[in-house]
């Protein structure tokens, strides 16, 4: 039995100046499902995720979460929406003025007004879940390696037990082994929370590991979607070229 649709995106359009980035994206994500959007650099993947998160306002189209329209709502609504979502940024985007545990516990401290002692305990517990020892908690983010920063970012995204988690290129800039560790953690934490996840990436190894479903974004539209198995069998020339990483094919690189 198919679960109900959690996120429903219709005809999403966004331009920057004369450059049209999203040209009508249609996408459905079911509850508890892990959808991976693949696509080349500059195809609008990041813009898509920022529209869902409410960081960018699309020019046209609709994004419904649990059947409720999110576009054009006021700031308070946006805050409530953000409280139900977690996001892992490409570069980690950790606050360098705060310690690691304060980063992880940020929502607890600022929004839920939990005491610092309790928040720290919770932060250390979540840090341990992502494989970081408790002595990391008092370090500053700049003292951590790239992989560790990703883990802290993941911990910060999941500490509030969000219903939806967005991953912006989670494995970019990591070595293959660390990338796989992060992939495992993403799968683990998403399944543990029963969260609906949307990942954007161009790392096919990561996509295969994380995805229940894959969608391909090309020139601002979703041109193909299906399961990982279907992806390997498809004769869609765009998808074939992308997953095999060929320079020859219908996709022309713009320089």
């Amino acid at each position: 039995m198919e679960k109900e649709i959690k996120i429903s995106i219709r005809n999403l359009q966004k331009s920057f100046g004369k450059k049209q980035v999203l040209r009508g994206v249609d996408l459905d994500i079911r509850a508890g499902e892990s959808l991976v959007v693949i696509g080349g650099s500059g195809t609008g993947k990041s813009v898509l995720i920022k529209c869902i998160q409410g960081l960018l306002t699309p020019d046209e189209g609709s994004i419904k979460i649990d059947g409720e329209e999110t576009i054009g709502k006021n700031a308070r609504h946006l805050r409530d929406l953000n409280a139900r979502m977690g996001m892992l940024f490409q570069g980690g985007a950790l606050f360098d003025s705060l310690s690691v545990w304060e980063n992880v516990a940020f929502s607890l401290l600022e929004n839920k007004k939990i005491s610092r002692d309790k928040a720290k305990l919770e932060a250390v517990r979540v840090l341990r879940q992502v494989g970081l020892a408790s002595d990391v908690a008092d370090l500053s983010p700049s003292e951590l390696s790239g992989g560790m920063q990703k883990r802290v970012g993941l911990a910060r995204a999941v500490i509030t037990r969000p219903e939806i988690i967005l991953f912006d290129e989670p494995t970019t800039g990591l070595d293959p082994i660390m990338a796989d560790v992060i992939n495992d953690l993403i799968v683990e934490s998403a399944k543990g929370l029963g969260a609906t996840t949307l990942t954007i990436t161009h790392d096919m190894a990561s996509a295969r590991k994380i995805a229940d479903k894959v969608a391909m974004l090309y020139e601002g539209k979703i041109i193909w979607q299906g399961t990982v198995k279907e992806m390997d069998k498809t004769d869609n020339p765009y998808v074939c070229q992308f997953i095999n990483g060929c320079a020859q094919g219908p996709i022309k690189m713009e320089f």
Binding site: L55, R79, N82, M87
Partner: peptide, 25 residues
């Protein structure tokens, strides 16, 4: 310099995703 760095490293976006208004914070 501080706010600019926060902007280009997406820390301001991160604030917003953590339900915190960057103008207030």
């Amino acid at each position: 310099a501080e706010i600019g760095t926060m902007r280009v490293t997406e820390q301001i976006d991160a604030l917003q995703t953590l339900s915190t208004n960057p103008f207030k914070y």
